[in-house]
Design a protein around this nucleic acid. Sequence first.
DNA 1: TGGAGCATGTAATGAGTTACATGATTGG
DNA 2: CCAATCATGTAACTCATTACATGCTCCA
Lengths: 180, 180
Amino acid sequence: MSGSSLNATAASLLGFLHDGPRSGYDLVRQAEEVIGDFWTLTRSQVYRELAAMEAEGLIEPAGEAGPRSRRAFRLTAPGRHAFREWLETEPGPEQIRYPLLLRIAFGRHLDQQRLTELVALHHDVHVERLAAYRELAEALEGTDRYAAATLAFGIRYEQAVLEWFDTLAELGVVERDRLR
Amino acid sequence: MSGSSLNATAASLLGFLHDGPRSGYDLVRQAEEVIGDFWTLTRSQVYRELAAMEAEGLIEPAGEAGPRSRRAFRLTAPGRHAFREWLETEPGPEQIRYPLLLRIAFGRHLDQQRLTELVALHHDVHVERLAAYRELAEALEGTDRYAAATLAFGIRYEQAVLEWFDTLAELGVVERDRLR
DNA sequence: TGGAGCATGTAATGAGTTACATGATTGG
DNA sequence: CCAATCATGTAACTCATTACATGCTCCA
């Protein structure tokens, strides 16, 4: 029993439970909103981790089951402790998996036009994301510095991607003037 | 048999096999070097995918087994075809998982000093990576434009991260003057 | 000539995704 | 009052990581 230290997904759930009891469904929503841009998770994972953490005594049911067997959980003292311990641990390196880059790495097998198309689609997505982030950042101004900090990463990142698209044109990997 | 289209990892292996027959071991090395920075994979995955692709007829043994049962594979015509098909498919969105950002998102549970320590460690890593990438880019100048293109992403990305670290200080999330 | 270390692969486990199921709500 | 939709959870599967095993090489 106990021991086997938390994975980041489980730990994040504990983090959210600091704000009060929540059901799996609530946690999925909150996680997607708050950390979804740099830590993906799905319903299935959440329910699995909740079950495991309940078994380990890190969380416990809060109140009776609601409609459609909704069950809320609350933190226990060991849960609080496990979360704190996780927070202190050395965060590992970031992991990026970028399928578009894979296409480009094998770009010599693809014609320039098709490559340009693929990139152009992504271009638009990033333009929109950057705009959305900026708006959010403005709305957040002066409220939650930690949310602002994660958002700042998103903004820098999106800028970097957009600049990189320009570089692709300069390198002749994609056709110039088909992006903007 | 056949059908179930390729995942990106398997497809990349096919990509490398265009340069000639290779064993699992070789492929791991090449993949780490060429796409490792934006597409992680491990030995186990490689062997799994090779076995699956051999069963599907996308690759076949090339020559007899060498020392310590080393087996090289070569592309088949269906393999070549499957690769091309994969290349054409819409690449999905990138995925980023950044454990440090997770610590920051829950930063209010951590004291500023510890947060600064964590960030400082990452700071150094990124400084070094950026330098290494830049050197590589110079060495690559004018040779392989696709390699240059992927490298350019790495450079932009590392720059973005470093700039973001500055923002963290400005936001008061980490202590100023403890990074550089 | 044997043992330190590298090359190569497999097995066990853990994490993540997709597909499925079913109970509530609610607007028409 | 029922059909569409949303809420909530589970099961099956695929993918990824870590731990283990064993065969070769080569130098002390």
